[in-house]
Amino acid sequence: MTDEHGEPAPLDGNGLGGVLGAFLGVDVTDAILVCDGCGRQQVLAALVVFGAGPGGVARCRGCSHVMLRVAEIRNELVVDLRGTTRLRLRRP
């Protein structure tokens, strides 16, 4: 996905809702995450997301630190959260 300059056009965390919801059974786009890089608190929907084939990378809107990596591998969803210090979920 590129813009008119051939740059990758990032989307946002709303777009991760489908794949996460498919595995978790609940919507997590309104989950609150705290960035391990700068401490900024933000909802998953607002993260800067780069899609990369089977994987997706979600970055902090403040400092661009990688907060979340997601890959759909065979029948598994792998989520790497090492860039996130805290994840808060609402009861469905």
Partner: peptide, 8 residues
């Protein structure tokens, strides 16, 4: 195709 994990 361009695939990227972040800003260029």
């Amino acid at each position: 195709p361009v695939l990227s994990a972040g800003p260029t």
